Simulated assay, not measured.
Amino acid sequence: MLISSRLLLLLTTLIQVCLSLVITDSHVASSCIYFLRKRSWQCSTAMGGHMSSSTWMCQCMNIEWLGSITNCIHDYANSTEELNHAYSHIVKRCNLRASTDYDVSEMKMYQANASSYLEDSELFPKGTNVTAPLSIRPSIFKTWYTTFRDYNYFVSMCQRLGWGCVGFWIGVLGLPGIYHYFGHRFVSFEQKQKFNKFFINKYDRVFLGFNRLEALICFVFFVVVLLMCAVNYNLELNAYLYNSWFLTIDCLSFRTDIIAFSLMPVFYLMGIRNNPFQYFGWMTHSTMIKFHKFIAIIFFVLALIHSVIWTDYANTTDGGGYAIWAKDAYFYWGIIGTTVIGLMLGLSIECVRNLWYEMFLVLHKSFAILFIAAMWMHCKTLEFLKMGLSTM
Rank of each mutant, 00 (worst) to 15 (best):
residue 310 W to K: 06
residue 47 M to N: 11
residue 249 I to Q: 02
residue 196 N to R: 08
residue 234 N to Y: 07
residue 78 N to T: 04
residue 386 K to V: 13
residue 316 T to A: 05
residue 42 Q to G: 11
residue 43 C to W: 06
residue 61 M to K: 15
residue 201 N to K: 04
residue 349 I to F: 04
residue 202 K to E: 03
residue 162 G to L: 05
residue 227 L to P: 01
residue 242 Y to G: 01
residue 292 H to Q: 14
residue 304 L to P: 03
residue 14 L to G: 07
residue 170 I to D: 01
residue 40 S to E: 08
residue 210 F to A: 07
residue 143 T to H: 13
residue 287 T to C: 11
residue 281 G to A: 13
residue 4 S to G: 10
residue 13 T to G: 13
residue 239 A to H: 02
residue 80 T to S: 03
residue 89 H to W: 09
residue 285 H to K: 15
residue 380 K to H: 10
residue 67 G to Q: 05
residue 5 S to N: 14
residue 359 M to V: 00
residue 38 K to I: 02
residue 247 L to Y: 00
residue 258 I to Q: 07
residue 283 M to G: 11
residue 209 G to L: 05
residue 88 S to M: 12
residue 289 I to W: 08
residue 175 L to G: 02
residue 309 I to G: 03
residue 19 L to W: 10
residue 188 S to I: 12
residue 315 N to R: 13
residue 180 H to M: 15
residue 131 T to V: 14
residue 47 M to D: 09
residue 25 D to Q: 06
residue 365 K to N: 10
residue 365 K to F: 09
residue 365 K to D: 09
residue 379 C to I: 05
residue 314 A to H: 07
residue 142 K to F: 06
residue 209 G to I: 07
residue 143 T to E: 13
residue 278 Q to A: 15
residue 83 L to V: 01
residue 262 S to A: 15
residue 366 S to T: 15
residue 223 V to D: 03
residue 272 I to N: 13
residue 180 H to K: 15
residue 76 Y to T: 01
residue 53 S to M: 06
residue 365 K to S: 12
residue 218 C to T: 09
residue 368 A to F: 14
residue 305 I to R: 05
residue 72 C to A: 03
residue 354 N to T: 00
residue 162 G to Y: 04
residue 37 R to Q: 13
residue 365 K to T: 09
residue 336 I to Y: 08
residue 310 W to Q: 06
residue 122 E to F: 03
residue 203 Y to V: 00
residue 312 D to F: 09
residue 5 S to D: 13
residue 285 H to Y: 15
residue 133 P to D: 10
residue 328 D to Y: 02
residue 358 E to M: 01
residue 52 S to P: 01
residue 116 S to A: 08
residue 102 Y to E: 10
residue 359 M to Q: 02
residue 61 M to Y: 15
residue 96 L to N: 13
residue 122 E to D: 07
residue 300 F to P: 03
residue 248 T to W: 04
residue 254 F to Y: 08
residue 157 M to E: 07
residue 103 D to I: 12
residue 119 E to H: 02
residue 345 L to T: 02
residue 371 F to M: 11
residue 78 N to K: 04
residue 367 F to M: 15
residue 372 I to T: 12
residue 132 A to S: 15
residue 265 P to R: 12
residue 125 P to N: 11
residue 170 I to R: 01
residue 45 T to M: 07
residue 298 I to G: 04
